[in-house]
Structure formats: C-alpha cells, structure tokens
Amino acid sequence: MSSSPLLVFDFDGVLVDGMAEYWWSARRAALRLRPDLQLPVSAPPGFAQLRPLIHKGWEMVLLAAELGRDDHRLSDTLADYGGALDRALERWEWQPSQLQEVLELVRREAIATDRSAWLALHRPYPGVPERLRALRGEAADWAVLTTKGAAFAAELLSAEGLEPWQLFGHEQGPKPEVLLQLRSLNRPIWFIEDRRPTLEQVRATPGLTSVRCFLVSWGYVRAADLTGLPPGIALLRPERFAAPLATWP
C-alpha cells in the first residue's frame, strides 16, 4: 500500500468559481426549451441562494425556468428543494436527461464559437492553481471528481495549465461509486468538497469510512454548513489548504 495520499477534489466551488457561467449557460439552455421565458441577462439574487443546494447541472436549467415564473416562491424552493425539483419537472414536462443534454449542447457551442469568452466566465479560487502544482513536491497525486461533464472540466483545467492524475465527470457515475473504485489503489484517499450533503453521503457509504473528508470554507458552501460538522468531516480553511499536507486536520 502506498503511503502517499491521493487528493480527490470536487471542481465547482472548490477549484473554480463558475457562478457567472452557471447562469449564462442555464439561462440559454432554458430559453432553448422555452423561448417565451423572460429571463434576465444577469443572474437574479435567488439563483445565488439556490446554488449551494444544486447537485447536478440539469437542476440549474430547471431552476432558471422556475425563477422566470411570476408566481415562483423562492422561500418554498429553499425550504423543500427536492420536492420543488420534482414539482418543477412535472410542471414543465421535462426530464433530467433532456435538461442535461441541452445544457451540454449550449456549452459545447460556446467553446466552439468563442472559447476565450466562455473561459472568462470562470475564475480559479485564489492560490488554488499554485497549491495544486505544489502537491508534486509532497509526493501526492490529485484528481478531480465532478458532476460537471468531464470535457468541460478538462477545458478549464487546461486553460490554467493544470494536469490532474485523473478526471472523473458525471459520466463516471455518482461520487461515492467513483471513490469506491479508487479504493483498489490501496492508498489513502482524501476527498475535498464544498457540498456538505455529498460528504455526509460519502461518510454513510459502506466501504468509504477510511476516506478523509474535508469541507472547504469557500465556494458555494452555506454558513450553516460550517458548524457542527459530524465526525469524519473536517473543515478546511484557505490558510490550512495552503499549508503542508501534514498539517491538515
């Protein structure tokens, strides 16, 4: 068994801030399906409030359409997010796979027609590219595990000159399943994420109790998520992230 850790990073909200692109793409995808929608060019405040709850890309498209409804109640969506998604899918008569397909089509077209403009809608979090490059000096490998399409994450990593050991997109399946597959490497696995429910799901998955889980304090995390963390999930602040791995919680 190798003693050097494999650091597995979530992408959006951990390595890259893509909030501007999320609305840009979600809005265009929603308008492809319903050209009659009245959606602002800039993201409405409600979208930022919902972002910490979003798990998969198709949800963004659905929420963009919901925010375009005159009778949409943001408080209801925040209070019962899962139920709100189910009701919205029924209301619009859409399927998650349909929404995901349109979202990825919009992104592919954006990259093909004006890659630099699409890339400019994202920004790496301060110090993140430098820290990832420094991991080599600590004999640690790093991978990316994201619900974004792998091709789009690869475009953004390439633009920053970053080369992960491996990149897993939504095409490879749910995050716990990918982490279970990585167990065969027989090395310590550290999972870094900004979505507390995902970390809690990992901790509850049989076979993943040895995975060290970290919740970053930046990204799209909610303030309430940073307190009262359960055993097995450690808070990772920027100053600790920048420090040697041996000092991490």
Rank of each mutant, 00 (worst) to 15 (best):
T209H: 07
G161A: 13
P126D: 07
L236H: 08
D225I: 04
C213N: 05
R107V: 12
W118I: 13
E104W: 07
N186D: 14
H122A: 11
E163R: 08
R123V: 04
L167H: 06
V102G: 08
A110T: 06
E171S: 08
G232P: 07
A159P: 14
W118Q: 14
Y125S: 05
A154H: 05
P230L: 04
L157C: 05
T198S: 12
Q181R: 12
L229F: 06
T198M: 11
R222E: 08
L121A: 14
A134H: 04
S97F: 05
F152Q: 02
L229M: 01
G137D: 14
W190F: 09
T147M: 15
I111E: 02
W218K: 03
V106C: 00
Q166D: 10
W190A: 06
E163W: 01
A117K: 15
A140E: 06
G161K: 13
P96F: 00
E104F: 11
A134N: 10
E155T: 13
V216A: 07
A110C: 02
R212D: 00
I111P: 05
P129V: 04
V211P: 13
V216L: 00
L235S: 05
L185C: 14
S184T: 14
S116P: 12
V128G: 06
D114K: 05
D194N: 07
L121D: 15
V178A: 04
I192D: 04
L162D: 03
P188R: 05
V211R: 11
P230E: 03
S217C: 03
A143E: 08
E155H: 13
W190H: 10
A154F: 02
P230V: 03
P188N: 04
E171T: 04
P188A: 00
R195S: 11
Q98K: 00
A234E: 10
L236Y: 03
A234T: 10
G228H: 05
L226Q: 02
A153R: 08
R107K: 11
S210N: 02
T227A: 12
A154C: 03
S97P: 09
L103F: 15
G127W: 09
P231C: 01
E171P: 01
W142S: 03
L103D: 14
R187W: 13
L182Y: 11
Y125N: 01
L226H: 02
D114G: 10
T198W: 05
A120E: 14
E155K: 06
G228N: 09
A117M: 15
I192V: 07
P176C: 03
P206Q: 09
G169I: 08
G207S: 02
Y125P: 07
K175P: 05
L208G: 13
L157P: 06
R187D: 09
V221T: 08
G169V: 10
R115P: 12
P176Y: 02
L119K: 15
R136A: 15
L157Y: 01
L182T: 12
R203L: 12
S210G: 01
V221C: 00
A153K: 03
